[in-house]
Each structure stands twice: as structure tokens, then as C-alpha cells.
């Protein structure tokens, strides 16, 4: 007599799919956050005639403690110029936008060398500021 082997079905529980997707998403969000500068503390200055900055691969930030960051990562003033040059190397004129985010109370001693470094490598400088509504 032949005894039939009982076929057992092993399904992945579909109930867990949503949770898996949720955790994956959280993982990628945290990973993305580490590369941008949205976690840094700074208050923008105000200016008139502002326009959309457009797409940029380089973002330089001076936070409220006057610390310098390039694309969200801390960097020294001495190596800033070479790093920006490295990032902008493959970009043609018109696409070399560099976003500069400076805390409104940061002093010239700190931000002027940064502006100089950006202009030296041919970066197209955009000061990220807020629209001055008092004007």
C-alpha cells in the first residue's frame, strides 16, 4: 500500500509584509538623513529678490556654533576648496550651483573664507535666505 506524503504548504505570512516595508522605509530614511544637513541648527538671514535655488550637489553650511559642514558632514576650512572642486569636477558651467547656508549671526571671519573658496573653484553661489517681508 502506498502512503501518500502529506504536502505541507509553507507560506510567508502576508500580514508581515506591511511591517517589513515599514522597517525598510525607516532604514532608508535614516540613511538619507545622514547625508543631508536638515539635522543641523541654523537660522537663515533675510534678503529681497530671492528665487528658487534649483538642483545642487554641493551644500555648505555654517551652523549656530559657527561649525562648517559640507553636505551635512563636518569639514575643515583648509580642505573645503579641494572637496568642493572634487564634487563639481564633472559639472559644466550652469550646473555648478553651490548652496550656502549661513546662520544669520555668523561672523565675516567665518563665512568670507567659505565664499572665497566657492568662488575660487568656479561654484555658482546661492545664499539660502528667507524673503524679507519688511521691505
Amino acid at each position: 500500500m502506498k502512503i501518500k506524503r502529506r504536502a505541507t504548504r509553507a507560506d510567508v505570512p502576508s500580514m508581515a509584509m506591511g511591517d517589513i516595508a515599514f522597517n525598510l522605509l525607516i532604514f532608508f530614511v535614516i540613511l538619507a538623513r545622514a547625508q543631508d544637513d536638515s539635522h543641523l541648527q541654523w537660522t537663515p538671514a533675510e534678503a529681497t529678490n530671492i528665487e528658487t535655488a534649483g538642483h545642487s550637489v554641493v551644500s555648505v553650511l555654517i551652523d549656530s556654533d559657527e561649525k562648517l559642514y559640507l553636505n551635512g558632514q563636518p569639514i575643515g576650512e583648509a580642505s573645503l576648496e579641494s572637496k568642493i572642486d572634487e564634487l563639481l569636477r564633472d559639472f559644466a558651467v550652469g550646473d555648478r550651483t553651490v548652496l550656502l547656508k549661513v546662520h544669520r549671526e555668523a561672523t565675516a571671519m567665518r563665512f568670507e573664507p567659505v565664499i572665497e573658496a566657492i568662488s575660487n573653484v568656479g561654484g555658482e553661489l546661492v545664499h539660502i535666505v528667507e524673503e524679507d517681508r519688511d521691505e
Partner: peptide, 13 residues
């Protein structure tokens, strides 16, 4: 939310 700012053209030093 796009970044908005003020373009500034500076000559190389």
C-alpha cells in the same frame, strides 16, 4: 519644499 535663495556672482580671487 525647494530651497530659495539669492544668487551671487563673485569673481575668482
Amino acid at each position: 519644499q525647494p530651497d530659495s535663495g539669492r544668487h551671487q556672482t563673485l569673481p575668482r580671487s
